[in-house]
Structure formats: C-alpha cells, structure tokens
C-alpha cells in the first residue's frame, strides 16, 4: 500500500509544476460553467414562474456549480493511459513490476483529482461571496455523510469503468476513438448537461440506478438535500453492487486481454 500512497504524493507534487496550465485550465472550466449558468438564468427569465421542473433558480445554479466540483473525481485518465500503454507496448515494462497497474493508475489519477478539486474549490471560495444569492445551502449531517461516501464510490466506479473501456485496446486498433464516444454518452447520462430529472419520467429511476449517476448527479442532489436519507442509502447500496460487478468484469477482461497481448521489441 505504501508504494501506491508514494505514487499518489509524487503525482500530486508533479501537478503543481505546471502553473500556467493550471491557471488556463481553471479559467476555461469556469467560463464553461458560467455560460451554462447564464443560459439557465435566461431559461428562468423566459419562464417567468421562477420554478422549472421543481428547480428554483438557486437550485439550478447550485446544481451546476457543485456537480462541476464533484466531476473532478471522475478518473477518465486511467482509461486513456492503459489504452496508450497497450497500444505502444509500454504495458510490457509495467506488468513485470511488483505492483498492480490497476491500483497504480487509481492512485495516480486520484492525486490528480484531488489537485483539480482543490484548485476548483479554492476558486469557488473566492467567487461565492459575489454569487451567494444564487446558491443554496441545505446540507445536513446525514446528507454530508452520504455525500462523502457517494463521492468515494463514484470515484472508484469511474476508475473501473474507464479501465474497462481502456482495455478495449487489447482488441481494438482505435480504442481511443471508441472511448471518446463513450465519454460523450457517459457525460450525457450522468447529468453533466442537464439534471437527470429533466429526462423523460419513465427513464429517470433507471438512470439513477446506473453507476454513472454516482459521478455528480446523485452527489449534487445529496448536497442540495433533495434526496431522502433512505433513498440515498439504497442508491449507495446499488452503487456498491456496481463496484463489485465492475471489479469482476475488470478481472475477467484483464485476464482475457493479457492472453491476447503482445509487444514487439524491448
């Protein structure tokens, strides 16, 4: 375990090296959120009632602000890294080392997630006083506990899903193109563009049970205290089951892929 924690610390320190990139990334991502929020302000101005699908304007702004914060814990990088390693043969060097590549990538990209979360959180602390009237704060102790657990589970789920998608490179020449397609679908179905309860009613319950709802939609609903405790706890159990299912799938795919894997050269 120490080796993984060491790599976590190392990659966290590396993230602090590229300051210009950090500032640029921070500015870009927050402009995107700002555009989304301004668009929804227009929707509410046009609607006139102040409530759209049960969301008040403060609820909608809060949803997008907190879900953008929670999305920093989606470990998309691990999938692309494993895919790259398989494609260019780097995997050969890694599989002979005395550690699990899965765990290594998890801790590496978790450090990156902490870094992204920290800088985004600090930025929001600076900006929030100017937009306080557009935000809600309904977090209770019970919701906070569920939120933290949900974020942890969502992080693990995102890593396992992306590792599965990255391991397509064992069979597909153009795995990364397929992965980007999945990224678009996952973003859509995880409520990145609009909250899942804006989807047709018949689909909402099913989408909430899907593992990607844990990325940001359910954590945002927990933050806003819009999910009853029992329902939140039940959903967490469902996501835990998804973690086990995805872990088993990862093991099966990894074993099948490694049998097929070959790399030319040393």
């Amino acid at each position: 375990m120490q080796k993984y924690l060491y790599s976590f610390k190392l990659y966290l320190l590396t993230s602090f090296q590229y300051r210009f990139d950090t500032v640029l990334g921070l500015v870009m991502s927050n402009i995107s959120i700002f555009i989304t929020i301004v668009f929804w302000l227009l929707v509410y101005r046009s609607n006139g009632t102040g409530v759209v699908n049960g969301y008040k304007i403060a609820d909608m702004v809060t949803f997008f602000v907190v879900s953008s914060l929670f999305r920093t814990f989606i470990l998309i990088g691990s999938g692309f890294e494993i895919s790259g390693m398989i494609k260019n043969g780097e995997l050969s060097k890694v599989i002979i080392k005395p550690y699990s590549i899965n765990m290594f990538l998890f801790w590496k990209y978790l450090s990156n997630a902490f870094y992204e979360f920290s800088k985004q959180f600090l930025f929001m602390l600076l900006v929030i006083p100017f937009f306080a009237r557009y935000l809600t704060w309904d977090l209770t102790v019970h919701s906070a506990i569920l939120l933290v657990i949900c974020l942890a589970i969502g992080t693990v789920i995102s890593h396992l899903i992306w590792m599965l998608l990255g391991m397509m490179a064992f069979w597909l020449e153009q795995a990364q193109a397929v992965m980007w397609s999945f990224a678009v679908i996952l973003n859509f179905l995880s409520g990145m563009f609009i909250p899942l309860d804006f989807f047709p009613r018949w689909s909402v319950k099913a989408l909430e049970m899907m593992p990607f709802a844990a990325f940001s939609y359910i954590p945002a609903k927990l933050y806003m205290n819009q999910l009853p405790f029992i329902k939140g706890a039940n959903l967490l159990l469902v996501y835990l089951i998804w973690v086990f299912v995805l872990m088993i799938l990862n093991m099966i795919v990894w074993r099948a892929g490694i049998k097929k894997y070959s790399a030319i050269g040393g």
């Binding site: 227009l42 929707v43 046009s46 609607n47 759209v52 699908n53 609009i194 804006f198 989807f199 047709p200």
Partner: peptide
C-alpha cells in the same frame, strides 16, 4: 428535454 418543461426561451 429542456423544452419538455418550458414553452420558449
């Protein structure tokens, strides 16, 4: 999906 809940923007 947005227009399920609003008439115009």
């Amino acid at each position: 999906f947005i227009y399920i809940h609003v008439d115009s923007i």
